[in-house]
Design a protein around this nucleic acid. Structure first.
Length: 711
DNA sequence: TAGCGGCGTTTTTTT
DNA sequence: AACGCCGCTA
C-alpha cells in the first residue's frame, strides 16, 4: 500500500475530538493500545512488551525508553538536558543546532510524542523532512514511544506538501488540478523546445544550453534573486543574452500554465503564491497546521523559508532543526546561512545546541572534527563522545581502482565473518558512477548490495516511456509526454510530433486529433489510430491502474524491443514498475509519487520488497544524509572526485565539497576507511591522481589515522 | 524537409 | 547511458 504522507484535516475531525483554536483537543480520547497493558523490561536494545497476552520483543535501541505502566514517557531519563529543552518546548519559534550524531532525529521524534501527549491533535503537527522515508520513520518511532496516534502526524517533503495542497487549490491560482509534474529532464526539454521556437538557438553568439537555462531559472525561483543577477554571477559568459533569457523564462511559465504542467519549483512557488495572495487560504492552512517542524533546515532555501513563515503566520509555532556544517545542497539554492537567519525571520526565537555525539567513537570524532575545523566559515560547536572504542580511522592508498574494489570486498567479508549484518556496512562516494568498478567486483564475490543515488530507475528511458502513456491519458495537454510517446512510432520524429500535438492540444481536437485525416494516410496513420484506441480504452472504463499499465505494456512492447538492444535486462525495471503500480489506485498519486519521491534505490535493484534483504549499502554521499552505519568505506577520496573537479575553481563550492567529506565521515559508528586509490587516466582538467586535498590539509592526519597497506 | 543511424564525448549532487 | 553532431536517404 502506498503510504500517503499527509492526512488531510478538512472535514475529517473525528467524533468526540474537537480541535480547539489552539490546536489542542477538547476531549482526550482514551487510547486503546498496548501501552496500558505492557509489561516492560528494559535493557539497552530490546524491550519486551505484551500485547493481549502475547509477548513480543521489539528493538528500541534507537529510542530506548522506560515507561511506567500507567504514566507518561519519562523524558528526563531518556534525554540529555539540551534535548529535553528542545523536546519540551511548546509554543513559539525554536531553533535547534544539532551536530552530526547528536540525536537530532531522536529529538524530533520525542517532541512529536511530547506534543501528542500534551493533547495536540497529531494531524495538526506538520513534519517537513528531506525525504518521505525519514518522515515515515520518525512517525513510526514516535508511535513506538507513545502510541499510534503519532502515525497520524502530517509529514513529508516540501514538494509533496506543495503537491497535496495544490491539487486542492489549483483552481484558485488559475491552474487545472489535473496538472502533471515535470521532472528535471522534462523541464529542460520544454526549455529546449521553446528556445528553438523563439529562434534563440541561432543567435550570433552561443545561447545557453538547456541545463544552464534550467539552473538559472530554478535558482532565481528558489533564492528570489533576479535572472540578471544570477546570470552575472554564475554565467557571466551569457550575460549579454539577459533579455532573451528573461523572455524565455516568461514563455516557459506561460507554457506550463497553459499546458497544466508544473516543475519541481512550481510546487513550491505556487504554494507560496497561494499563501501570499489568498489570505483566507493562508489562515485556514495555518490554523490546520498548528505545530510545524522542519528537519535538515540547513538545506532549505529562501523560498522554503518563506513558505514556513506563511504557514506559521497564525501561531508562530515553528521548530527547525539542522546543522550548518552539513549543508550540501547549495545547487538547489540552499544556503547554510539560512539557518542562522532563522531568528531574524522569527523574532523571539529560542535556541538549543546539541553537542554530545552518540554515534561515533572518539577517534572517529577527532578526525571529523579535524576535517570540519578547516572550513572557512562555521558556527562553532565542539562535538564530544563518550562511546568506547579506540580504533582510529584507516587511511589506505590502493594501487588502482581495482585494488580499491578488492580491498573493500575482502574487508566486507571479514566484517560479515565477525557477525556484522551486510546492511550495517556502507560504501560512500561522491558521484553515482564512482562505484561502477566496485559493483562488478561485488558481483564476482557474490556480495549482494543495494545502491542509492545515481541514476534512478524512474529516470531510465524505458520507464519514462511507459509513464508518458499514463501522463497523456491523465493530462491531454502534456506535450512533453506526447512527444515521447509519438516519437516511438516509426516515421515520427520531432517535427511530425509537434504537428500532431498541435492538432490535439491547440486545435482542440483532443485525443481524436490522432485520427485526423492529414495523418491517417501517412505510414504512421495506423499506429496513431492504435494509440488513440489505447488511450480511449484506458480512460473509458473504470479500470484499475494495474490494468491500464498492462494495456500500455502490450502496446509498448514491440516498440520497446525495437528501441533497445538490451531490452531483456531492461524488462526487469518494467516488471518493478508494474509491481509498484499494484500498490496504487489513482493515476495521479502514482505519477506524482514517482516524480516527486521516486523509490530511492537505483536502476537494477528491485525497488520495494526485494530491497529489504540483508545487503551491503552503496550510496552517494548526498543520499547517505541522515543515515549511519557500523562500518563505512569512503572510496575515491581523490582530488577531482572529492572535491569534484567542477568545484575546484570556486571557493564556495569547494567549501561545500569539504562539508560533503564531513557528512560522509560522520556516518560511521565504529570503523571508518578512507580510501584514495591511484587513478590513471586523469587529464589536466580533472587533475585526478593525488589523494584529496582535504586529506592533506588535516594537520595531524598521521596521528588521527592509521596507515594500512592495500594488500 | 524530416527521419534516422552512427560516432565520439561526457557523466556532480536531487526534489 | 545519453547527448550532440554529421551525413545519408526518402
Amino acid at each position: 500500500m502506498p503510504l500517503l504522507p499527509f492526512h488531510d484535516l478538512q472535514g475529517q475531525s473525528e467524533k468526540n475530538e474537537e480541535v480547539l483554536s489552539n490546536g489542542l483537543l477538547s476531549n482526550k480520547v482514551p487510547i486503546s493500545g498496548w501501552r496500558e497493558e505492557m509489561v516492560y523490561s528494559c535493557c539497552c536494545a530490546k524491550i519486551q512488551r505484551e500485547t493481549k497476552g502475547k509477548p513480543e520483543m521489539i528493538d528500541v535501541s534507537k529510542d530506548t525508553f522506560e515507561g511506567t505502566v500507567t504514566g507518561c514517557v519519562d523524558y528526563q531519563k531518556l534525554l540529555n538536558t539540551a534535548q529535553l529543552n528542545a523536546v519540551t518546548h511548546l509554543n513559539g519559534p525554536h531553533l535547534v543546532i544539532a551536530g552530526a550524531g547528536t540525536g537530532k532525529t531522536r529529538t524530533l521524534v520525542f517532541r512529536v510524542a511530547y506534543l501528542v501527549e500534551q493533547g495536540v491533535d497529531p494531524r495538526s503537527i506538520l513534519l517537513l523532512t528531506f525525504t518521505r522515508k525519514s518522515a515515515q520513520e520518525m512517525m513510526h518511532r514516535a508511535s513506538r514511544i507513545l502510541d499510534n496516534r503519532c502515525s497520524r502526524v502530517s509529514g513529508g517533503t516540501f514538494h509533496s506538501f506543495g503537491n497535496l495542497i495544490l491539487r486542492k487549490y489549483a483552481g484558485t491560482i488559475g491552474y487545472s488540478n489535473s496538472f502533471t509534474i515535470l521532472d528535471r529532464t522534462d523541464a529542460e526539454e520544454v526549455l529546449a523546445m521553446l528556445r528553438t521556437e523563439l529562434g534563440f538557438h541561432q543567435a550570433k553568439t552561443r545561447f545557453p544550453r538547456k541545463d544552464a537555462l534550467m539552473n538559472v531559472i530554478s535558482r532565481s525561483v528558489n533564492t528570489g534573486a533576479s535572472l540578471a543577477e544570477i546570470l552575472a554571477r554564475q554565467y557571466p559568459q551569457y550575460a549579454h543574452h539577459e533579455d532573451n533569457v528573461c523572455k524565455l523564462a516568461e514563455e516557459y511559465a506561460r507554457y506550463k500554465l497553459n499546458k497544466s504542467m508544473m516543475d519541481y519549483d512550481d510546487l513550491l512557488s505556487n504554494l507560496k503564491r497561494l499563501l501570499e495572495e489568498y489570505e483566507s487560504v493562508r489562515i485556514r492552512l495555518s490554523n490546520t497546521y498548528r505545530y510545524i517542524m522542519v528537519d535538515e533546515y540547513q538545506d532549505t532555501n529562501r523560498l522554503q523559508a518563506k513558505i514556513v513563515q506563511l504557514l506559521a503566520s497564525e501561531h508562530r509555532n515553528v521548530m527547525v532543526v539542522g546543522d550548518d556544517s552539513q549543508s550540501i545542497y547549495s545547487f538547489r539554492g540552499a544556503n547554510f546561512r539560512n539557518i542562522m537567519d532563522f531568528p531574524k525571520l522569527f523574532p523571539g526565537t529560542t535556541v538549543t545546541t546539541l553537542e554530545q555525539n552518540y554515534r561515533s567513537t572518539q577517534p572517529i570524532l577527532s578526525l571529523t572534527n579535524a576535517i570540519i575545523s578547516n572550513a572557512r566559515e562555521k558556527y562553532s560547536k565542539k562535538l564530544f563522545s563518550n562511546l568506547p572504542g579506540r580504533q582510529k580511522p584507516w587511511y589506505v592508498r590502493p594501487k588502482s581502482q581495482f585494488h580499491q574494489a578488492e580491498l573493500v570486498c575482502r574487508q566486507v567479508r571479514e566484517f560479515v565473518r565477525n557477525g556484522t549484518p551486510l546492511s550495517d556496512i556502507a560504501v560512500l562516494f561522491r558521484s553515482g558512477w564512482h562505484s561502477n568498478d566496485l559493483e562488478v567486483e561485488l558481483a564476482a564475490h557474490r556480495i549482494e548490495f543495494v545502491k542509492y543515488g545515481g541514476l534512478k530507475f524512474v529516470e531510465a528511458a524505458h520507464v519514462k516511456d511507459v509513464l508518458a502513456f499514463l501522463r497523456v491519458g491523465f493530462n491531454l495537454k502534456d506535450a512533453i509526454a506526447w512527444r515521447r510517446v509519438l516519437m516511438l512510432l516509426d516515421g515520427v520524429g520531432g517535427a511530425t510530433a509537434n504537428r500532431i500535438i498541435r492538432s490535439i492540444v491547440d486545435n482542440g481536437h483532443g485525443y481524436d486529433g490522432l485520427a485526423s485525416g492529414t495523418f491517417s494516410k501517412k505510414k504512421y496513420g495506423e499506429a496513431l489510430a492504435g494509440l488513440r484506441d489505447l488511450i480511449h480504452r484506458m480512460n473509458a472504463l473504470e479500470l484499475d491502474l494495474k490494468d491500464e499499465v498492462r494495456m500500455i505494456m502490450d502496446f509498448y512492447n514491440p516498440y520497446f524491443e525495437g528501441k533497445y538492444e538490451d531490452f531483456e535486462s531492461r524488462r526487469n525495471d518494467l516488471a518493478s514498475l508494474v509491481q509498484i503500480a499494484e500498490r496504487y489506485d489513482s493515476v495521479e498519486k502514482f505519477l506524482s509519487d514517482l516524480t516527486i519521491e521516486p523509490p530511492e534505490a537505483s536502476r537494477g535493484n528491485f525497488p520495494g520488497e526485494a530491497s529489504r534483504g540483508d545487503r551491503l549499502v552503496l550510496s552517494t554521499i548526498h543520499s547517505a544524509k541522515g543515515l549511519e552505519w557500523e562500518h563505512v568505506f569512503l572510496i575515491h577520496l581523490v582530488d577531482g572526485c572529492l572535491p569534484s573537479s567542477y568545484s575546484v575553481f570556486n571557493p564556495e563550492s569547494l567549501e561545500e565539497e569539504r562539508r560533503l567529506f564531513y557528512v560522509a565521515a560522520t556516518r560511521a559508528r565504529k570503523s571508518l576507511y578512507l580510501i584514495a586509490p591511484r587513478i590513471e587516466g586523469g587529464n589536466e582538467y580533472t587533475s585526478y591522481g593525488g589523494p584529496s586535498r582535504f586529506l592533506f590539509e588535516i594537520r595531524d592526519l598521521e596521528k588521527l589515522t592509521q596507515r594500512r597497506s592495500a594488500q
